[in-house]
Write a protein that binds this DNA or RNA. Sequence first.
DNA 1: CCCCATCCGTACGCAGGCGCACAGTCACGG
DNA 2: CCGTGACTGTGCGCCTGCGTACGGATGGGG
Lengths: 229, 229
Amino acid sequence: MQAASNPSNRLLAALPRKDYARLVPTLAPVTLKFGATLYEPQQPIPHVYFPIDCLVSLLVPTDGRQLLEVGMVGHEGMVGASIALGMPSSSLHALVQGGGSALRMSAGRFRSELAGSPPLQLMVNRYLHALMAQISQTVACNHFHVVEARLARWLLMTRDRMRSLEFRMTHQFLAQMLGVRRVGVTEAAGALQGRNLIEYARGHIRILDALGLEAACCGCYTAPSAVPA
Amino acid sequence: MQAASNPSNRLLAALPRKDYARLVPTLAPVTLKFGATLYEPQQPIPHVYFPIDCLVSLLVPTDGRQLLEVGMVGHEGMVGASIALGMPSSSLHALVQGGGSALRMSAGRFRSELAGSPPLQLMVNRYLHALMAQISQTVACNHFHVVEARLARWLLMTRDRMRSLEFRMTHQFLAQMLGVRRVGVTEAAGALQGRNLIEYARGHIRILDALGLEAACCGCYTAPSAVPA
DNA sequence: CCCCATCCGTACGCAGGCGCACAGTCACGG
DNA sequence: CCGTGACTGTGCGCCTGCGTACGGATGGGG
């Protein structure tokens, strides 16, 4: 288990030193800006990203032009893992929800590095499995749980991935992620704030009581383990 | 595109003749019975299955002992694909929803065959990608669409995988799959029957008007392509 | 042949969330 | 310093689905 403040990507950090060293020169540090779109469905994936302290949401398109979040990626994983399945594109949108730094590699390069590094394959495969589990969990959570609990879960998951208790996020944006009305978020957030679990104002949210939030949350939340499994 | 009546598994059928031939002796035909549990979460996966004319549901456990369907597998895919990601277990339940025949292989054997057959890897990876897309779609569908549309989608997806317009299925069971009350299914099914799209009685459902069903269905339904992509 | 378990139909009050609308408040830029 | 746009708070009627309950129907086993 690494310290939460370790400024690196866990998926890469779990590689054997040799494999990691070979990868380093192919990785370019980049800063991802809030709101940026990394991929759109059915479009070619130019790069894969290994987040360090940013947050990327995976969103499924729906009929009415709406997007709904099905998963999120932070320093525990990577964006663009479907490249590892040999697919040139993802079926999901990838949108930067929390600005921050990441390491980037071209898709082609990733493919060849993958071919030459079984440990990298292993880690990516594990991550794919964890991501499928996360998405499956989301199916159940979105369906059965009330907005307040889902919001609590979202905040905790975001905290884990951003390694920060405070982030920029409007109710409108949260509503989009959770697939509910903005008003629904306002009410749920108000309730959490009323219990001193969070505080927020004009596009900033801060977690005051993480344990309390976990209690307010549904059972769907589990902190990501050191190595995604 | 194969004839729908071709009694084989499409994933295997799409392999080059040579790879397919090598696989054949490792595959045992089995009959899967309605209601059988193939896997439970966190339990080792003993075998992988390539359905021919049966239907296997993938279900996520929820707090209250309930199970919710997140995906289904038929002759277009395989059950236990997470083995290909190097994981010894799945995070989902795998339950036989429609009895029928399948081809079975031990997990260990599958792993070694996979290592020796890049075309098999390719097909399995494609299928994993398609499955992730299916699960993601389910997130949105379960969340936004009314029971009637979701039921229509479920029936069409089942038809595609069972290659049959008629199957055994009670309202109670459907309710479990869709994560709603039995009464909700009764009402939705009654509405579809009233429009002569389906007919049903005591645990049997028959599709009368597939095109009409597609119209009653949400946009989440798309027929699986010949090769899962 | 009849009984009983299983399956389906219907009813009723309730809650969570929706769509919409409008008002108040804060931050930033000109 | 003020105005404008972005963000949050509140209200209202509506609809879908929930939980529960009970009654009717059907078909297979004793």
